[in-house]
Design a protein around this nucleic acid. Structure first.
Lengths: 209, 209
DNA sequence: GTTTAATGTAGTATTTGTACTACACAAAGG
DNA sequence: CCTTTGTGTAGTACAAATACTACATTAAAC
């Protein structure tokens, strides 16, 4: 009998997952919890074959939970489910030891396939994530994106993130507006982003702001 | 036989909702769609007893869909489901004609109760939202800055916060760029801010993003 | 029940920002 | 050594955004 634990703060999501899984594994024993706390407690106390967890949950995040689990039970497979289509986190999650990274939009079959693979002790990687992995192979991705910026770029990055206008920055740094704009373009390119807002959000998330 | 239409971009959520509803209304006819487009098409073409829709969906937002529906079928009850725990949007959504505002975290029983009430042509208001409504009644009870924004302003506010460009917003809302820019100016004025980045930061802090 | 303030909308003129291109110089790689 | 590659810098031509102004329509206040 397969024992699956589901952690997600949204009731409906838990229901949906359970439903999808039960259709494929009618005899599975499935339990659920609403946050990372419960997840960790359950993992410590009982034995499971697969953990399926959301990334964004109240309190301790899914990422932290994942790290905890991997620390104590490196062989317990964890499938991470994310609400955001962005595969930004995917690589980090996988590096942290997750057996797969899935999106909530993805088809149920995808989930089922992932669980099957994971039960065999294998990893489940979607094609789009595989692409990213290959792209990032030779780069050492210990580094955060902003760590690749040059000195000048980083300065401009901080100022733009905090909402300064390009012309203000130009004045402040005694540069031409176009120069600052060029830096901005290089920053966005290097960080693989498109808007200033993304920079702001990034800065907040990484406690740079 | 009850006819329910579910609109949500996350497959798992649709599954969960369907499951919960079928347990209570085994004979219900339930269909689903992944975005506002499909929702609107379905509403136009067929008859439904209840619509359950998410707020944040790709493309046209749930809010817009709600307004469209209410314009053409004022009596068709729409239950709005939101991923954000904060009831920030609740009041706006209800004002726009929704019959209820639910959170994805809420218990299935809550959803079921809501559907029951809504089928009777009544509104479903959770206690916490009721509180907010009462608070809003007498004067400006410590309202948050963004609550002073008008509907249009609020829409633009969200889009700007998330990093959309003024011209993109104009296209999306079928308005002139200058109009959107005017809204932006009014938003900044009302919220006593100066830059888009501040709006982004505010949105993150207040869990609107 | 009229005056006033708020809301939804846009045009014109101007300011601000960007893409593209360019170049010098330093560092790195072969 | 030479030759890429990365960095710091800016001009020109074009695109995007804004300030200001304006007006019709509601909603609110008196």
């Amino acid at each position: 009998m397969i024992r699956i634990f589901i952690a997600d703060d949204h009731m409906v999501v838990r229901r949906g997952l359970k439903q999808i899984l039960l259709e494929e594994f009618p005899s599975a024993h499935i339990e659920e919890g609403a946050d990372a706390e419960i997840l960790l407690k359950k993992v410590m106390k009982e034995e499971w074959d697969v953990i399926i967890t959301d990334l964004s949950m109240p309190g301790r995040s899914g990422m932290e939970a994942l790290q905890q689990i991997k620390l104590h039970y490196p062989k317990l497979p964890v499938l991470v489910l994310s609400g955001h289509p962005e595969e930004q986190y995917a690589i980090r999650v996988l590096k942290a030891g997750a057996s797969g990274y899935l999106n909530k939009e993805s088809a149920p079959e995808e989930l089922v396939k992932a669980v099957h693979r994971v039960l065999l002790g294998k990893k489940y990687i979607t094609p789009s994530i595989a692409d990213q992995l290959i792209l990032g192979l030779d780069k050492d991705n210990e580094k955060l994106p902003h760590e690749y910026l040059s000195d000048r770029e980083f300065e401009v990055f901080k100022l733009i993130s905090s909402g300064k206008s390009v012309s203000d920055i130009a004045t402040q740094m005694s540069l031409s507006v176009t120069t600052v704009s060029t830096y901005r373009a290089r920053i966005l390119e290097k960080m693989n982003m498109k808007t200033n807002a993304q920079l702001t959000i990034y800065s907040i998330e990484n406690k740079l702001l």
